[in-house]
Design a protein around this nucleic acid. Structure first.
Ligand SMILES: [Zn+2]
Ligand SMILES: [Zn+2]
Ligand SMILES: [Zn+2]
Ligand SMILES: [Zn+2]
Lengths: 155, 155
DNA sequence: ATGAGATTGATATAACGTATCTTAATTGGT
DNA sequence: ACCAATTAAGATACGTTATATCAATCTCAT
């Protein structure tokens, strides 16, 4: 089903570090720990959950307020996405891609917070934007988020 | 632009009261006050904002926790909709319609919380559901909500 | 080494929401 | 009209997400 090449967590982190370097920013140790949490979990996590993760799994205290700042940084580097709907964060699933990644949309499982990052076909997005424009509104962002159920949780 | 007949707040409240009666439920005074708040405001309001509204505009103390319960009731009667995205509530814009109202979608202005209740064309919804199904997910609800900007706020 | 700028820590506070227990109001049958 | 059962509402505590501020620390180029 998923035919993307599989990368290890450390490969993804290395790639992220180089990417930051190339942009003149720094993927510090703490930032790397937070990103690792998201990459490993494969599901959306809140800032507080990430603080717990650092404490419990990495044996490293990181106050929630620092996690928030770090998430802001990672988002500005396009390494993570903030999901407004779930109020949680996910690692971008394209950190290891070379191509510029398209505007993403997210399917968020309400049951387990598993997240699929997809790209909705341009035609569909165009129709949607038209429907919205028809009543005098406009989409605030093309990054749409949908409350979903994944295969496992839909039973 | 909006060609629906215009109803006064009290007409809408009367209609809501009769509707509840016909279903064997009660639109009590407090419930009516909360609904009035939403009908009058024409924009999405949080439970706490509605409690403030009752205190400041109606000179009537209503603790936030009661407002939550009342909103739950109103939602179960389909008189208000809870907007997950904004964490706010709106009066259903079809209280005075006789026809069974279609599955609604909501455009929520991030700037001013004005809300448009629309019905997305069936074809568009079908395409969207297919795209989602293709990756093994399913929409948790057909009541979609979109972060938008209204005409006034898009400047 | 030093000073500017970036990074992190610590604390307080706000907004939204749930859980639980208690009290009050309403309804329906006698 | 009266009592029991049900429904509605009040009160308190707590949980989660998030922002604001100020202080301390680290990094790097000069
Ligand atoms: Zn991405
Ligand atoms: Zn799931
Ligand atoms: Zn409606
Ligand atoms: Zn607006």
């Amino acid at each position: 089903m998923n035919q993307d090449p599989v990368f290890s967590t450390s490969e993804i982190l290395d790639r992220a570090e180089n990417y930051c370097k190339s942009r003149g920013t720094r993927l510090t140790d703490k930032r790397k720990k937070v990103l690792k949490g998201l990459v490993d979990s494969k599901k959306a996590m809140s800032a507080y959950e990430l603080a717990d993760y650092c404490r419990d799994e990495l044996d490293f205290q990181l106050p929630p307020m620092s996690v928030y700042r770090i998430l802001d940084f990672l988002e500005s580097e396009h390494l993570v996405h903030r999901l407004d709907l779930a109020k949680k964060y996910v690692a971008c699933s394209h950190i290891t891609c070379d191509h510029q990644h398209e505007q993403p949309q997210f399917l968020i499982c309400k049951g387990c917070y598993r997240v699929r990052e997809i790209s909705i076909k341009r035609g569909l997005m165009n129709s949607l934007n038209e429907s919205v424009a028809k009543v005098g509104f406009s989409l605030a962002s093309q990054q749409l988020e949908f409350d979903c159920l994944c295969g496992d949780c839909s039973g």
